[in-house]
Every structure is written in C-alpha cells, then in structure tokens.
Design a protein around this nucleic acid. Structure first.
Lengths: 168, 168
DNA sequence: CTCAATGCAAATCTTTTGCATGCTA
DNA sequence: TAGCATGCAAAAGATTTGCATTGAG
C-alpha cells in the first residue's frame, strides 16, 4: 500500500503547523526510540539521517510537538528535559518513572497501570471540577535509591552530575 | 522555655553537615513560606535577614537539605527548580500539583490525599521489591489548562516564558 | 586547630532569540 | 507568492566550580 500521508500529518496540520522535512525526520527519530531522549540525543540521531538539521530546530520542533500533544516532556531533575512520543505507532505504552536520586538512573514501569489509571481518572475528574482545570496529562515520579546505589550509606551519597549523554 | 537546639539540628548533623549561620537563615526562610520557592526567591528572602549571603550558598545549601531529606525539590517545567520544606514545624502538608501548561501557574492540592496515599504506598511497596529500589518520596503532577487559559482555543496557546519571580 | 563552608567571579550547560534565507501550502 | 520554518551565531538564564578566606566543632 503506497502510503497516503503519514499518521502524524493531520495531527500536525490541525494546529496550523507545516509538515516540513526536518520535522518528519525528528518524528522518525522519536518513533524509532523506545525511551525518553534528551534534546541533544535527538539532535545527534536526527543529524545522522539528516545532517543539515540544527539544534535550534530540534528545540523548536519539540516544543511544537509537545504543544500538539504528540510528545511528552519529562524532567527528571538532572538539568535537561527528556522527550518521548505519546501517540502513533512508535509510542510506548503509558508509564511512570522510578528515579534514582543518586545516579539519576530512570526506570520506566508500566505495572499497576490499571489500578493507577482508575484512581488517577477519578482524581482528575474531581480536581478538574473543583479547580476548573482542564487536565490533559499527568506524571508520577517515584524517587529513591536504585539497587546499585543502595550499597553506600546514605551520607556518603555524592550526586553525580551527568554531563554526557550515554548511548542507548 | 529557652530553646535547646532547633528542631533541625540533629537532622543536619546526622549527615556530618555543620549547622552554620547561613544555613539557619535559609531554613528560617523556608520555614516561613507556605509555598515552593525558587532559588532566587530564597536568595532574596535570605538576603533580607542576612545580607551577607551569596547565591552560591543558597544552591549549595538547598542541595544539602534535599540530600538530608529536609527539603523537596520540584520541577514544574519553567526552567527553574522550586524548593519546599518537607519536615519540621514550617512544613506544609503533603500535597501534589496541578500545573497549567499555558501560563505555568501551579496549584497545590491536598485533597484525596488519603486515597492516593494508600495506593501510592501499595505501589511503592510492590515496585520496591520488584526493582530493588529504595523509594523515599514521590511526586504527582497533573498537567492541563487553568480556568483563565481555557478561554483561548488550544491552537492559539503561546507558552509564556516567565522571566521574573513574582512576589508571593 | 582543622577542614568543611562561604562568597565572589568565572565557567558551564541547556535552552532561547534575532535575523537573513529557504521552503511548504 | 506569503509567511512559516530553518540554521547560524549570539544571548539569556540557571546552576556549578575554582579558589582564597572564614568559622564551626
């Protein structure tokens, strides 16, 4: 089946945004990764398949995609944001995060989603009414020490500042 | 009752940290505010009661206090972190946040805490075991549009970059 | 007295903006 | 064609670091 417009075409155009070449490449990159990526990682990967791209476009496109509801933006507290496709074929299942406060490692979990989902749904409905807030998404972050970091006693913890992106 | 050491004395010393004058002043500031403050706000307020303080000390002390579990650090996505006392007389009740994705307004809510609390407790216990993660805190963020921002149709949204701290 | 803590200035790092040019609709 | 979109260079901000000095224990 020689493709009609890609799945995201309408979702982009609906907001008045144009479906440009760089944007398509960035969406390809996001689609092909299963985990949240930093802007820099997205830049590197996009650069690989389209060397002409600039970091600025990455940032601008990500903001646009977040705005259009196609991408989730996360902040795990290490000074840079992470992005992840929220819709479409490449999107991973809805999940929440375990974050190690020592080494910044992030573990995604999808368990318990059913229970959470119902409760969150109830909460959101209740709060929406009370605060007249139109809630469209949520994040749950659980902070703690991962298995590796539990070995050291708490007072020896030394926050590790991650300066380089690690390969996937 | 002419006071013994302040409530936080032990909690600081337990980690090998010294209870210095600047640190006490910063804790005073945190104790006397009911809401999450940015580092800059904390700096201004501390400067008011102790003009000698430097912004660097604010950052270093906050990191230390987060480490010691006395302070919560939040990230609402506007490019700067917020801090809030988690223990002691000045600490506010445990709560979660509603965040407007358009104007960045943050509303704290404490409702439904009981239900959430039980569920989160269960989840944390379960995940702790499964991932060998020693969970010590959590955050729930609900994103959406506040009442003011709902007036405008979605595609007209223009993220507002807040550059100045507003007065409390 | 010792070494952690501080303040200042400079450095880092991520993200944003100005502007001339390119490209989608 | 009309504007939105892009890339580059520069700017902006928040946070961190080097270093000499101060002060808590």
């Amino acid at each position: 089946m020689p493709g009609g417009p890609p799945w995201y075409h309408g979702k982009i155009r609906r907001f008045g945004y144009r479906l440009t070449f760089p944007r398509q490449k960035i969406l390809e990159v996001l689609s092909s990764s299963s985990k949240h990526l930093s802007a820099e990682e997205i830049y590197h990967r996009t650069h690989r398949i389209y060397p002409g791209v600039g970091l600025t476009t990455i940032y601008r496109t990500l903001e646009l995609l977040v705005n259009a509801g196609l991408v989730f933006k996360f902040d795990f507290g290490d000074g840079r944001s992470r992005y992840e496709l929220s819709k479409g074929p490449g999107a991973t299942m809805h999940h929440h995060h375990l974050i190690c406060t020592n080494c910044q490692r992030v573990i995604d979990y999808t368990e318990i989603a059913k229970r959470e989902k119902k409760m969150l749904h109830d909460i959101e409905r209740e709060l929406s009414k009370k605060y007249k807030f139109d809630i469209h998404s949520h994040q749950i972050h659980l902070y703690g020490l991962c298995d590796r970091c539990q070995m050291k006693p708490k007072f020896m913890e030394r926050p590790i500042r991650q300066t380089q992106d690690r390969p996937e």
